[in-house]
Design a protein around this nucleic acid. Structure first.
Length: 938
RNA sequence: GCCGGAGUGGCGGAAUGGCAGACGCGGCGGACUCAAAAUCCGUUGCCCGCAAGGGCGUGUGGGUUCAAGUCCCACCUCCGGCACCA
């Protein structure tokens, strides 16, 4: 009867914790006490429910939270739902239910599942990004962005009213000032080519387009011009990169962010565009003279083609210029005879999807414009080409092509038979002429710079160009401004009004909704499907929503919605003060709890979510709304959990087996049971046909492969504590690991053994095992206990849960055979077990007669005296090979070790008649005898 | 192509430069049982050997060191990310 029954005890203790508010967190941590903000990346509540990947990170943070609480730390450990977004909407469209309904249902499922796993969240802080009370503040933060401009002089966001207005703009009147301000806001509108995904019916951020198709769904994406809301994240590029330095994040994640920001330093250089007809040489000289006095202009005029390069040292190797098809100067540069060809090329480029345009395998294409620009240093004419391998959105949208020293230019030149001029030679001697060399070296053929090394050349020529007003140092980023509007229903409406004139046409004046009127709710819509055109669904809202009047003027609401990222950019702040109706967060609360001390989630958010939320946080910091530059202190990515290991054999069309290393496309994979395969050397083969190799690996869980593990099922079969423990025991948190249901059985066995340490399984009623006693533990038992406590205490903060669990298993293995089991051993063990298997621990604690909850019991202290043994066993090596062991007192020094080792009969025997050249004795570690070289003896 | 990460028993994995394989799964053997399950105990890297014992062994090849899974150099394979960013 009293067997270990998780199905009975788990709901019991979940109800107990809930009834007693065991994990409710105070508004502020107690003064002078320690605080820990332990945060999970909140889930997107998909219709499929929880995946086994979710509990991995959640269990890790739960263990840390429970451990810290037991050590007296005030712990903030909240949970909520990132509930806006495409999948909810797609699902809603498919099933015909409004997104709000399906989202509420999905959240209920997730909440039930999360509670079923016994996580110690303060559920009183639960938020969903779709709650109107939450949307209100998301919209408010958008208004902060809208009200902020970035002052490059102080590298900081400031109120838009602080923006200095140039006299010329001020003179042009109020409308011009408003326009000037709008152009400098962090949230601004832009008519720009955007990624339009017809299948999803929305535009997407650059970050959401992977290889020319949508990240979600893999649908083709084309570029069309459209008026869109953008967030000026590029203004923060420098800080987003620099301020990564101090974060306790994995280096790999920091690097991903740095690469994504993609800072590059180089120079901008102007190439003179001579006027049509006339004396080009004379015009060039006049232009140069003018530049020498006027300097390098902020924006290039019509008379120059401005390029960006990181390799100004290759200026003498320029053999042509290449501009993007969308470059504004193309028309002016196109010679009459080339008009048709250029027009056709630009048209084709515009129609091409990003997928086609970024396909690296494809040959370079391009068209000669028929005109030339003038090289600023040599005065020579340089032909201008249009080619789509040059991106309009990076740098200046134009490059100088140096085929000898850039692989793309090299390929382009070879395709079109353009000249290749070598101007750099490797330090170790000249490469053959006309070949490609992209490394650093020494300049040749470069006028006055010949002989300079790459680095000094770049510095020298940049200075010279700047002095002559022909160029300047410049910094570029791969990072683009963040396209922030979506043509979908299920997102936050923008708190923005567009002024209308008497005819109902937009005047171009845009204003934010007054703070008091927030939130702007989503209008009820019968049909919330996206259309075939980029016209947002909200434009079909009723007129009472769509049109508003303020101070006698008519406005139309913005009908785009925000992307899913918006809500997740700041949820970690709202958790701290979720019910505040006055502010998005109380500043005192923010100061007390921030920053997040431990943030755990999947690596899929390494770039987007973490970059976006850092950006918002920095803006809020600049505007004085939060007190730290960075939101997340320590970040850890849990690894992916793959499906069970699979063996796959291949059958040919005829039915015979094909070895996996020589299979073809036509052969069909067959999943094989483990009994039919065996390992032979490096590979697995068929047991009956050892010539046939079999593939063995674990695959990502997916519905189509049918290897998805359902947490509900695991909880039913093994219990929540077993699932928690297993996921922590699988291996290092950050590693990718295959699932093994047999492994769940293994940890379940451990929990049963722990149960039997305390409970008499053969009794009819719940009763203590007869071995449990009040004896004082023996010294040996205390040593075992304290070593276990010590290991677990050190492993939890390091997130090394697998080794902590292994140590607890050893402890249970040690205790199981004991005829008498002192409480002084069992009770500390139960407290140490509590963060890992909280339900079982509570139950055992109760059976031991201790007052609930063990979840808040003090963590047992390690007594150092029990960590040292009286004697230690030391390995003895001869020539680095293990030859014996000696037992010595724990504190034995090197000399004592050597004496003891040489006294050992077995060692003495092997040393007899040989010359000891050296003895290495490391106290507490080992002894090694190094013998004199035998070969050198006569 | 570039950038990360990882290669250790049949499997998941342990191992501050100091006894490779902790712990678990699986396997084998035993006790208990009429029997089975459950449980408990033992055993389990490979090779030679009846044994004592010996040899080999952390992807490959080299190096540093008294001592290398761990440090250095070169390479191979797998996984993940980025990808015409001038």
């Amino acid at each position: 009867m009293p067997r270990y029954q998780p199905a009975r005890i788990e709901p019991k203790w979940q109800a107990w914790w809930e009834a007693h508010d065991t994990f409710a967190t105070p508004r502020l941590p107690p003064a002078g006490g320690r605080k820990a903000y332990v945060l999970d990346m909140f889930p997107y509540p998909s219709g499929d429910g929880l995946h086994v990947g979710h509990p991995e990170g959640y269990t890790a943070t739960d263990i840390v939270s429970r451990f810290e609480r037991m050590r007296g730390t005030c712990v903030m450990h909240p949970m909520g739902f990132d509930a806006f977004g495409l999948p909810a909407e797609e699902y809603a469209i498919r099933t015909g239910t409004p997104p709000a309904e399906s989202t509420a249902r999905n959240i209920a499922t997730f909440r039930r599942q999360l509670k079923m796993l016994g996580f110690s969240y303060d559920w009183g802080r639960e938020i969903a990004t779709t709650d109107p009370a939450y949307v209100r503040w998301t919209q408010w933060i958008f208004l902060v962005l809208h009200d902020t401009w970035f002052d490059p002089d102080v590298q900081r966001g400031r109120p838009i009213t602080d923006l200095p207005i140039p006299a010329a703009v001020a003179a042009a009147g109020e409308a011009a000032v408003a326009k000037y301000r709008d152009a400098h806001r962090l949230a601004y509108q832009s008519e720009a080519p955007v990624n339009w995904c017809p299948a999803l019916g929305t535009v997407l951020a650059n970050e959401e387009v992977i290889g020319g198709v949508s990240e979600r769904g893999g649908h083709p994406v084309v570029r069309i011009p459209l008026r869109q809301w953008m967030l000026r994240i590029t203004a923060y590029a420098d800080r987003l990169e620099r301020e990564l330095d101090d974060l306790a994040w994995p280096e790999s994640i920091k690097k991903l962010q740095r690469d994504w920001i993609g800072r590059s330093t180089g120079a901008e250089v102007d190439f003179f565009v001579p006027p049509a007809g006339g004396d080009a040489a004379a015009a060039f000289e006049a232009w140069k003279a003018a530049r020498a006095t006027a300097g390098f202009p902020e924006t290039p005029g019509e008379d120059v083609l401005r390029i960006y390069t990181t390799r100004a040292d290759t200026l003498y190797g320029v053999t042509c210029m290449v501009v993007a098809p969308e470059h504004p100067l193309v028309d002016r540069l196109t010679a009459t005879g080339q008009r048709d060809e250029i027009a056709a090329y630009r048209d084709a480029a515009a129609r091409k999807s990003d997928l086609d345009r970024t396909d690296l395998a494809r040959e370079k294409t391009g068209v000669f414009t028929g005109s030339h620009v003038v090289h600023p240093l040599t005065g020579q004419p340089v032909p201008v080409w249009v080619a789509d391998y040059v991106l309009a959105s990076y740098g200046t949208g134009a490059i100088m092509s140096v085929p000898a020293h850039d692989d793309r230019d090299f390929e382009f030149a070879r395709t079109f038979g353009l000249e290749i001029v070598t101007v750099i030679e490797p330090e170790d001697g000249p490469a053959p002429g006309g070949s490609l060399f992209t490394g650093h070296g020494r300049a040749v053929n470069s006028g006055p710079y010949t002989g300079l090394a790459t680095q000094s050349f770049i510095a020298q020529v940049a200075a010279d160009l700047a002095a002559a007003g022909l160029g300047r140092a410049a910094v570029n980023y791969k990072l683009r401004d963040w396209l922030f509007s979506r043509q979908r229903f299920w997102g936050e409406p923008f708190p923005i009004l567009h002024e209308l004139d008497a005819e109902g046409r937009p005047t171009g004046v845009v204003c934010g909704v007054a703070e008091a009127e927030l939130p702007v709710p989503l209008p009820p819509l019968a049909d919330f499907k996206p259309g075939d055109t980029p016209d947002p669904p909200l434009s079909r809202a009723g007129h009472d929503w769509l049109f508003v009047e303020r101070d006698g003027r008519r406005y139309r609401r913005e009908t785009n919605t925000m992307p899913q990222w918006a809500g997740s950019c700041w949820y970690y702040l709202r958790f701290l003060d979720p019910h505040n109706a006055e502010r998005f967060i109380d500043p005192a609360v923010e100061r007390a709890w921030m920053p997040v001390d431990l943030y755990v989630g999947g690596a899929e958010h390494a770039v987007l979510h973490l970059l976006y939320s850092r950006f918002w946080h920095k803006v809020l910091f600049d505007r004085g709304h939060v007190s730290h530059r960075e939101p997340f202190g320590r970040l850890v990515n849990q690894g992916m959990i793959l499906g069970e290991m699979e063996f796959t054999g291949y059958r040919a069309a005829g039915g015979g087996w094909v070895s996996a290393d020589r299979r073809g496309e036509a052969d069909t994979p067959v999943r094989l049971p483990a009994e039919q395969v065996e390992k032979q050397g490096e590979h697995f083969v068929l047991r009956d046909l050892p010539k046939i190799r079999v593939e063995s690996r674990a695959y990502k869980m997916s519905k189509s492969r049918g290897n998805v593990v359902n947490p509900d099922q695991i909880v039913t079969d093994f219990g929540a504590d077993s699932l928690r423990l297993y996921e922590m025991f699988m291996g290092p948190l950050e590693a990718t690991k295959p699932w093994s249901t047999a492994g769940v059985g293994g940890v379940r066995t451990f929990l049963e053994r722990a149960w039997r340490l305390v409970v008499d399984e053969r009794a009819d009623e719940l009763a203590l095992a007869p071995q449990v006693c009040a004896d004082p533990p023996t010294d040996a038992q205390l040593r075992e206990l304290h070593r276990m406590i010590d290991k677990v205490t050190k492993d939890i903060p390091a997130l090394s849960f697998n080794t902590a669990i292994a140590r607890m298993m050893e402890f249970v293995n040690f205790c199981t055979p004991l005829e008498r089991r002192p409480r002084g051993l069992l009770e500390p063990f139960v407290t140490v077990l509590a963060p890992f298997a909280p339900h079982l621990a509570e139950e055992l604690w109760e059976i031991l007669g201790r007052p609930a909850p063990v979840s808040l019991a003090p963590w047992p202290a390690v007594e150092p005296k029990w960590l040292v043994d009286d004697t230690v066993e030391i390995p003895v090596q001869i020539q680095g090979k293990l030859r014996g062991r000696i037992v010595v007192p724990a504190g034995a020094d090197a000399a004592a070790l050597e004496t003891a080792a040489t006294a050992d009969p077995k060692i003495a025997e092997q040393l007899a008649g040989r010359t000891i050249a050296k003895v290495v004795a490391v106290p507490g570690r080992m002894v090694n005898f190094v013998l004199a070289n035998q070969g050198s003896q006569p």
